[in-house]
Design a protein around this nucleic acid. Structure first.
Lengths: 238, 238
DNA sequence: ACCTGAACACCGTTCAAGT
DNA sequence: ACCTGAACACCGTTCAAGT
């Protein structure tokens, strides 16, 4: 291939290289062309790696090998990026293919949902924006359809759908927030603070979530069972 | 009072007024001296009036009649202001004075908690930071103490405390987020979007939360009942 | 002990201009 | 159709300096 020689020659001279080499020599390395999908993808990995307050249009653009202002051709605003990122990770929540009964189906959905929230801790804090992306809607659809097929009617239907959603969201928010593992110095400080004021908070100091590594999983499962039992009773008693 | 005359005279001349009048002529009008409490108080009213993304150290300082940098004497960081504001509104949650039974007590606490979240919609989004303020802790203490007195033991105790908290938090977040009343154009747009794709989301389009003004209150109450029933069964069956 | 001003290192976003 | 650069109107925070 003589092209490589021509290339290096062009690079050695300060002037522009050969025409047919220039467009393929992309920004950073061998980056695919910029696109909305690529932006959102990169946003998710940036969020996963550094958290929500480190996501900046400038930093995001830098990772993509462009200027920050270029992003605005593909995306209207930073909030759009966040909305798109939030919907993208929802695609990871598996929708049960074949039914094993409504309780099992819903449990699978909710567990998957929770897993995603914990896998992408930044997402829990973003739940305060209305979620209307296709991936979110598809999973809401599954939830409603499953409840309807199980025989739920109003007001139990809405209460069930909301109750389940709110429960996962709250749980995900709490656990994602909680200083775990790395941020253990914060947890320890909280623990000491509680012990120092244990005359004010005796029950909390003795049994509170700050004292021991909480068993989030069984706690979550227990609460979910209570909710599902209630829904089931509502259906049976129509 | 001759002082008023002296005052106006001093103001008319461009030079400094009488010594004993100057210190009492505060920044804006008759503002009390700056203090941490006053800053947090003003932050809450600013948040209530304009929302979280309009809270700025500069704007907050302006309302208080100072420069933004002055705030940093009383407060270490903007996040501190948010933490303090969050704890301040928790003081509005009434802790039941005399017991009417554990279910009634807890229901009262949770309902009060929810009411605060809805009264200060910005607060729901801030729940992603660890809450260790005195007002928050006092209410957590009440929750744990009540559950303990009712006879809850592990793992039901933790599951109950978490489940209830997560449920209110999630509900508050969702409802505070939801485009209600004023932001009705967004809700209507969501509605149309759903109808336009109703072959993809049939259950959602027919029964989803977007179709009708949701009855949040009864939905919330129903879900809370399910949770409490589950907790009660756990206690009874020890 | 408290307040001020200037300054630093950032932000999101717009827009005329390039190819 | 896509990308660039300069520019605007902001941010949170620090710090030397004032009283």
């Amino acid at each position: 291939m003589d092209i490589s020689k021509a290339d290096s020659g062009a690079r050695r001279s300060g002037t522009a290289g050969d025409v047919w080499l220039r467009p393929s020599a992309r920004k950073g390395r061998d980056a695919p062309p910029l696109s909305r999908d690529r932006i959102v993808e990169e946003a998710v990995t940036l969020l996963d790696a550094e958290g929500a307050d480190r996501l900046t249009m400038r930093r995001l653009a830098e990772r993509l090998g462009t200027g920050s202002t270029t992003l605005y051709w593909h995306v209207k605003t930073k909030d759009d990026v966040l909305d798109l990122a939030l919907d993208m990770i929802f695609a990871e929540v598996l929708i049960p293919a074949e039914s094993r009964g409504w309780r099992a189906d819903i449990t699978a959905l909710i567990d998957g949902w929770r897993a995603v929230l914990l896998r992408h801790p930044w997402s829990a804090a973003l739940l305060s924006r209305p979620m209307l992306g296709p991936n979110v809607l598809a999973r809401s659809e599954f939830l409603y359809a499953t409840l309807l097929r199980a025989g739920a009617v109003e007001p139990h239907l809405t209460a069930a759908a909301y109750g389940l959603s709110n429960y996962v969201i709250g749980s995900g928010l709490m656990q994602a927030t909680w200083p775990t593992g790395a941020g253990q110095e914060a947890r320890q400080a909280a623990q000491e603070h509680l012990r120092a004021h244990q005359e004010s908070y005796p029950a909390l100091a003795a049994h509170g979530p700050h004292v021991a590594e909480a068993d989030w999983d069984t706690g979550f499962a227990l609460g979910l069972t209570w909710l599902l039992d209630g829904i089931q009773a509502g259906i049976a008693g129509k």
